[in-house]
């Protein structure tokens, strides 16, 4: 397991709220952060899949992280980056699955790998990220996807689920302001019998490869899994700027 990095409060802002300011290239940057509870994610077997649900999610064999089974709250940290800070320009900064309420003191990159695949050896600041090509990321339970999602040979997920032109299409739910907030969605999987779901967010400034980060408390226990959507203007460690 890789080295546990210290948390710099002005650089790691998952779950932070309030006004924050930085100076980058001699220019002041001010963001106002707030969190949006997105509901709970039911991980019956603890197999968390951080993914681009519209492009890379597969029926089986998704890269996953093994966590203790359970039902965990998911929270999005959203930045108001508009100049007037009037909510006119919002960007999701982190999508976080919370395992404990203990304060986090350190972090490290987590490596989602498909079952049976060995995690690659990585350099100091390399990571295996979540590839995003639809501008969205999400958390879902691997077991629930395999069990509940229809067989892709029998149903085209894109046409029938994601973008079927109906109000319950996944894309439509993402943009529905009355649901959680435009840009966030908590969607029950088709055929769910026990609330099995998928939680989605827009991915910061769009497509890219985003790091999956684990936060840890003083005892070294995992407190959360976060997709860092690279919206903050500084790297998480000063030596990486």
């Amino acid at each position: 397991m890789s080295y546990l990095h210290p948390i710099y409060p002005d650089r790691w802002m998952a779950l932070a709220e309030g006004d924050f300011a930085w100076t980058v290239d001699d220019k002041p940057i001010r963001y106002r952060l707030h969190t949006v509870p997105c509901g709970e994610l039911w991980l019956k077997q603890g197999r968390l899949v951080p993914c681009d649900p519209f492009v890379t999610l597969q029926w089986q064999g998704n890269p996953e992280l093994q966590l203790p089974p359970g039902c965990y709250p998911v929270v999005a940290t959203v930045a108001d980056i508009s100049e007037a800070q009037d909510g006119s320009h919002l960007r999701e900064c982190y999508l976080s699955l919370l395992l404990s309420a203990q304060p986090a003191v350190g972090w490290r990159f987590l490596t989602p790998v498909a079952p049976g695949v060995t995690a690659p050896l990585l350099g100091g600041h390399e990571f295996v990220g979540v590839p995003v090509d639809s501008g969205k990321v999400g958390f879902v339970d691997a077991d629930a996807v395999a069990r509940l999602m229809p067989d892709p040979d029998e149903m085209d997920w894109q046409d029938e689920l994601f973008d079927n032109g109906q109000a319950d299409a996944w894309f439509a739910r993402m943009d529905e302001p009355s649901h959680l907030q435009a840009g966030l969605a908590n969607i029950i999987l088709p055929g769910a019998t026990d609330g099995e779901n998928l939680i989605l967010a827009h991915s910061g400034w769009g497509d890219g490869t985003y790091a999956v980060v684990g936060s840890y408390d003083a005892s070294g226990a995992l407190t959360g899994v976060h997709i860092d959507l690279a919206v903050l203007p500084l790297a998480p460690l000063p030596e990486w700027d």
């Binding site: 090509d133 400034w205 497509d207 690279a230």
Partner: peptide, 20 residues
């Protein structure tokens, strides 16, 4: 990256994928 930051400051989308 500097160009992307400039576009973002102007409110234009510039994803990290586009940068790459």
């Amino acid at each position: 990256t500097r160009a992307a930051r400039l576009l973002r400051e102007a409110g234009l989308d510039a994803s990290s994928a586009s940068v790459i």
